[in-house]
Each structure stands twice: as structure tokens, then as C-alpha cells.
Design a binder for these strands. Structure first.
Lengths: 348, 348
DNA sequence: CTGAAAGCGCTAACAT
DNA sequence: ATGTTAGCGCTTTCAG
């Protein structure tokens, strides 16, 4: 092993003929330590290239300064934005981030939670997997006072934890209304797997808009996605138009599905928005330059990450000061980006 | 603090009236421990919900079972694929992943390296930031025997470390040749910041293809991107066509730039590929359904992540067994996805 | 097959 | 202002 032994506090202490405690304090900029010793310590430390061992500090202080993140998927514009937001806030506050990808699998989510618990993370940020119905794998965190904040895909039943979500219902309602108001009907919905809270809320929003417009829901206008790929979007659009050639509009659960659908419509010789208007959810950068530019419900991913991380850090602080912290649910607004794919007439 | 005290080995030991050493061994499935004790320990552990403290184990064993990853950007299809690949391999091998985002900033990269070193990661995976010229912030890893593997954007000067890259030169050469062979000339290049190894290689590939086709490079055909956004791609395409209305083709450093350029060309009333053929680099899923479908050089992100992580884990093992490990450079092939945006005639 | 003891590197009482 | 002591929870000799 080439590994040079790491420099420790003891090494510095020996070299300077003082105690490790003093060295530790000098390095931490403690109040009552002489300016002179502080100087000598800091100087030697940088000269010997001393680097503190966070594992040791963590063990001793019973805190790791690490937060865990469990996310269904990382190759996804929205989720990666959230992660970016989380990391910005966490690093600024001196916390590191340990990332796990559940891949939409309940089992993986359970072992991820375990692994992160074993790593003694100071807090946990989770967006749950499609398949997760049971949340007992987060119990040990809550029982041992490790704050957990859920974001985006959250367990709606749990009410003793904080959550950060976007207003999926409202966004879906607005999107559907936007189409219905233009007289676009029959209006279909390509929905996501209904186990996900987000997909469920979006479906509800769609149904509420229909009701508001005086239409009764029609199951032949609601098709369900499984893997949420472009291909699936295209496939469902083809199936939809075969079954319901009279369909005039589609509200898709994500931009991926919407873009896949648009492509299929184009291939079928159907023009959007003239024959079938389409709107998605998430607002990828790319959607705006598609042909036709895709309308979409924008959700603030970066902000969600920042807010969720901020909330978690506050809860960690509260826990440290033995303060109580009431779980809160923060609902972020979505914004409708109406572009050509959903606009039959010049903008109302 | 609500935090229930965590169960420790000592708790189990006391409960069973045996020593912590035995408990530790039983849990780790050591050879010489009686089946009976093993059973009792395992049973009590699961009953009391014992969870090992990896911090403590790490401190003692002088290994954290964590690998650090520093990446310029996470909201990026290619990079997030790489991360996914890394995580798959790491978690399967029992390693956790601590992620840092340098945001293309040298300073952030330096502090990230420091933070990860302090966390005593067992190995480091890095794709360097645009601005990084100096690599001494990785010295402490190498000096203390912590393996470092660079991927994608690598320090070309360093030769004592392993690297995993795609064949940027070859990919760019193929892409350019593909256009030149169709008689597409003048051929422009929207290049990336030349500090990045990838951007440099792509430029070289473009230049080599020009030379091969008997053309002399022309600086008015090479425009440089800074922030690599859609808008920048569009802006540069406009500037290019204003300066060189005779330009017949564009090889863009990434799909973002290519798509931005395509959009601008469309707005200028220029048809692709008929008037200006375009090809990108990275092959996003979305590129294939763009109008026109964008040709691109596909690079295997997921595989790069898997390979880089695998290599790093092997080096970590080697280091543990005090074996020597020769740094290697793995070059992954790219594949040209020729679609309509670059095909003037039916496929040659 | 099991236990005792030492110690990984750091910090926090408690002294002085 | 600094030192002494005592762990944090775990693994690993070394004994038996």
C-alpha cells in the first residue's frame, strides 16, 4: 500500500508540543484560544497538509453532515433539476449529499433507505417509487429523530412528515380547461401509473376540468402509461385515435408522452393543434422548439429541490436544538406555457 | 431530542451476555463462530432492529465504502446517464456514492475535491470543469493512495491516472466526413470551449476531416460556444449565416447547439438538410423525433459510467491488496446516427 | 470458538 | 488559555 499515513490531530499536537484538544479548538476557531497558538496551529496544519477526518468527527459528534437523497430516476430533466437544487442548498450549508436511485423499484427503495440509515445521514430527502405502497422503511428514521422530507412523489397518507410538491391537480386542471375553453372536446388524457401521487393528482385535475365544463368522464378517452417513454406516448396516441377518431385534444401526463404523441399524430397525418391539440406537463427546454412548439405545464424543479433541502436543514437544526418542528406541506405553483400545440386561435 | 438512542453492538452483547467482538463476528458471518451463537445474535439483531454504524466501521477499518463523484453538471442527459451507470455498479459492489457538482467552476471543483477527501472516500471519479487547468487538488488523493479515475472531460496531460473517454476525435471526424462526402461544403463547426478535452478533440476531428477532403480550415466557419444553450446555438447559427451565406453544413459540438441552430435556420427560412445540413453530438432521445430528425454522434453515457466505476473499484481493490495497478485509458467508440438533418440524398 | 483490550481520529466535559 | 480524560461504535490482534 502506497498510502502515506494521513496526518492527524495527534501529529500536529506532537509536533507543536501541545494537546490534541488545543489543536482541535484552534482549528475550529474557538473563542478562548490564544491568537499565537491559533496561528501556529493553522500554519502547521496547512504546511503539513492536514485534513480533518469527517468520519471520526461524525462518530464523535453523532452527526455526519451528510444528507441522503432517494430518487426514482436521475436521467430525467425534472429530477436532475431537483437534485441540482438540493445540492446547491446542501453544500452551501456544509452538508454533503449521498445519492441513491430507486429506479422506481420498491425493493431498491427499501435497501437504499437502509443503506442511508447505516451511513447515519442527518436527514433524508425522498421522492418515492411507483411501486411503493408501504412506507415502514422510513420508520427507523423518524423513530431515531432523523428528519425526512418527501418531494414530488409523496406518500399522501403520511401526515407526520413534511412534503414539497407542485400543484399537480391545479396544473392539470388549468391545462385541461385551457383546451376545453377553446371548445376542444372530446379531450383525452394519457395518464401515468396511478400509484404515483403526481399521476393521480393530474388525473383528478383533468376530471375536475371535465366536470366543470359539463362533460362526463369517458374511460375510452383515458389511456394509461407504464414506462413513460416517447415510444409509449406514440403508441398510446395511435391506439387512442384508432378507438376515438373524433378525439380533438390530448392532455399528457408528461412532456415525454406528449412529444411521443405529437410525433405519432404527425405520422398519422393529423395536424396539431388544428385536428388534435396537445399539452404536456413538465416543460422541458426542448418542448418550446419542437414543431409545433409544445404547450406544457411548467413545474419548478430547481426550486423544489432548494425548498425541500432548506426545509430538511431547518428540521435538522430544530432536532439538534431539541425544538419541535411541525411537519409542513409546501405546494409550489405550476405555470401554464401555452404554445402552438394547444392554441387553435390566436391567444385568447 | 426525540431521538431514541441507536442500538449498538454493545447493546446486543449485553443482552446476550457475550462480548461485542463475538457479536460483531456473528453478524459478519465469520468462519469460526458457533452456529448457535450466530443464530441467536442474528435473531436478536433483527428483533431489536440493530443497524450497524458505517461511520464507526469506516473509522476503524480506514475505509468508508463511499466513492466520490465530481461532475460539471447534473442536469444534462449525457452526464446524468453516466451517473446512473456509476451508481449501478457502485451499489452492486456495496459502495455508496457521494455526488458533487462543480458547475464548470474550477474553484468549486477544488473545494469539492477537498470535501470528498475529508469524507475519506475510497475512490474518486471526476469529469473536470471547463476552467480547470491545474490538477493539484487531486494530488492528495494520489499521494494517500486513493484511486482517481477521470471520465469524459479528462486532464490530457496527466498520465499517471486512469481515464475513460469516448473517441471524440473519431466521432467528430466521422460526422464531418459524412457531410463532406456528400459534397457539403463550406462546412462550419460550432465548437465548444476549447479548454475542455472533449471540445478540443471534436474540433481536431473536424479539422482532420477537412484536411482529408482537401480543404483548408477557415476561421470564419468556426464559431465558439460559451454556455452551450439552445439560445446560443441559435444565435451562433444566425451569426454564421450572416457572415457566410454560402455555408452548406454545420457540425455542432452538442445536440443542444445543433437543435438551437436548426431552429434558427428554420426561422431564417433555410431548409435542412437541403440548404444547410446539420449534425450534432450526444444523441439525445429527443433528437430523433425533431423536425427534421437530427443526425448525431451517439456516445454511450451509461456504459461510460459503468466502466469508469468498475475500473475505480478494481483500483480500490488493488490498493487494498497492496498490488500495483497500471493506469489505463479506455476509449469507447461512438456511433454515427445519420438521420434526415444530414442526408441530402437517400442514404449512400 | 470466544473474550479482553486496544485503538481508528476526533470532540466535549471537566479540570486547572 | 490549555491539558486530561473519556468516550463515539466498531474491528482486530492476541490470548485463552
Amino acid at each position: 500500500m502506497l498510502s502515506k499515513k494521513q496526518i492527524t490531530l495527534a501529529d500536529l499536537a506532537r509536533e507543536l508540543g501541545i494537546s490534541t484538544a488545543t489543536v482541535s479548538r484552534a482549528l475550529k476557531d474557538y473563542p478562548d484560544i490564544s491568537a499565537e497558538t491559533k496561528r501556529r496551529v493553522v500554519e502547521l496544519a496547512s504546511q503539513m497538509n492536514y485534513r480533518p477526518n469527517s468520519l471520526a468527527a461524525g462518530l464523535r459528534k453523532r452527526e455526519s453532515n451528510v444528507i441522503g437523497v432517494i430518487i426514482p430516476s436521475i436521467v430525467d430533466h425534472f429530477f436532475s433539476s431537483v437534485i441540482k437544487g438540493i445540492m446547491e442548498v446542501a453544500y452551501d450549508a456544509g452538508y454533503r449529499v449521498m445519492l441513491c436511485q430507486s429506479d422506481e423499484s420498491y425493493e431498491k427503495e427499501v435497501t437504499d433507505a437502509q443503506v442511508l440509515f447505516d451511513s447515519r445521514v442527518d436527514g433524508l430527502l425522498v421522492s418515492i417509487a411507483h411501486g411503493s405502497q408501504d412506507y415502514s422503511h422510513f420508520d427507523e428514521f423518524l423513530e431515531s429523530g432523523v428528519p425526512v422530507v418527501f418531494f414530488d412523489k409523496v406518500p399522501e397518507q403520511l401526515d407526520k412528515v413534511s412534503k414539497v410538491v407542485v400543484n399537480d391537480f391545479e396544473g392539470a386542471y388549468e391545462a385541461s380547461m385551457h383546451l376545453l375553453r377553446q371548445g376542444i372536446y372530446p379531450l383525452a388524457h394519457l395518464e401515468g401509473p396511478q400509484i404515483a401521487s403526481t399521476s393521480r393528482q393530474r388525473r383528478q385535475g383533468y376530471l375536475a376540468a371535465l366536470a366543470q365544463a359539463g362533460h362526463t368522464p369517458d374511460e375510452s378517452l383515458i389511456l394509461t402509461c407504464q414506462d413513460m417513454t416517447l415510444e409509449e406516448g406514440a403508441m398510446l396516441a395511435r391506439r387512442l385515435m384508432a378507438a376515438r377518431p373524433d378525439c380533438q385534444g390530448i392532455f399528457a401526463v408528461t412532456d415525454t408522452i406528449a412529444l411521443g404523441a405529437l410525433t405519432a399524430l404527425k405520422a398519422l397525418g393529423l395536424r396539431s393543434p388544428e385536428q388534435v391539440a396537445v399539452i404536456g406537463f413538465s416543460d422541458w427546454t426542448i418542448s418550446a422548439i419542437f414543431e409545433p412548439p409544445l404547450s406544457s405545464v411548467a413545474q419548478p424543479g430547481l426550486e423544489m429541490g432548494r425548498i425541500a433541502a432548506g426545509l430538511l436543514l431547518r428540521e435538522i437544526q430544530a432536532e439538534k436544538q431539541a425544538e419541535t418542528f411541525l411537519p409542513e406541506t409546501i405546494v409550489l405553483p405550476t405555470t401554464l406555457q401555452a404554445r402552438r400545440s394547444s392554441l387553435r386561435s390566436p391567444r385568447p
